[in-house]
Design a protein around this nucleic acid. Sequence first.
DNA 1: CTGCTTATTAGAATAGTTCTAAAAATAATT
DNA 2: AATTATTTTTAGAACTATTCTAATAAGCAG
Lengths: 145, 145
Amino acid sequence: MELRDQQPIEQNRNITEMLNAHGVNPTKQRRLIADVLFARNQHVTADQLFDAVKQTGSRVSKATVYNTLGLFARKKLIREIFIDATRTFYDSNNSHHHHFYNVDTGDLIDIKERLAPHFLGPNLPDGTAMEVVDLVIRVKNKNAE
Amino acid sequence: MELRDQQPIEQNRNITEMLNAHGVNPTKQRRLIADVLFARNQHVTADQLFDAVKQTGSRVSKATVYNTLGLFARKKLIREIFIDATRTFYDSNNSHHHHFYNVDTGDLIDIKERLAPHFLGPNLPDGTAMEVVDLVIRVKNKNAE
DNA sequence: CTGCTTATTAGAATAGTTCTAAAAATAATT
DNA sequence: AATTATTTTTAGAACTATTCTAATAAGCAG
């Protein structure tokens, strides 16, 4: 059996290193959550992630899911995307990119191209530093009235 | 007395015309809400607006404030800004512009410069049309850790 | 007027998220 | 190893912004 096939172990070591590298104590629950979250690039709600972790047979409380997502976001492991008052997504891809949001279907899609104004930095309000640029392009279906 | 000084009446005519022009039936409550909302360029929450209307001595239910803000936003009289799960602002300035949000102070500030990628239009997902471009640049205080 | 549609209302209900206080796990110290 | 201190997790209650409900009121057309 090749190392390549031992995904879970590899993944797990990577995850632990990843958490450490971002100053996150890699506890059991955080690793369980991260395993599911970083299995692929995805946009998930806290609730979806809570269910997804349950699917794996592991048990993590909802409070921990919320705490962990908040922590990961603060530590820049993931990105929070606030679509509206009832839709907060967490993006397992923390790289600089932006999103389309289809208001008719609820789809949230990555934008590949770099669009955001990096050149804007110098014009930030006095005494502030850039935290993150959130660009969401809301689109609607053409057929929908 | 010059016409210029008769703000309320002028304002009121303008408001009514404005609502009509956007296909909004200018009912009494909607005019009351619009009077307060469009008195100046501002970012308000539904609750703040509810209170502000009350301050004027008029009475409008909270449900109507929510309904009206939703309607105005759909009709593009105003813009909704989703800062996070507990902060939805309504911007009485519906022109194309963007925002700084200071995560430490909660301040939401207009960005004067045009930054957003208009040139992006052609690359929208299949079968969709542009609705709105929401760009929020989150900043933090330099002194804050 | 009379009926028909639209708008408003108070308050209940909902949904997403945060809080609380206790238990459990982990780490540090003797 | 035993003890203490610190951090993390947990269940469930609490909270908050928003939406829903179902009744009333207002506006309009015939």
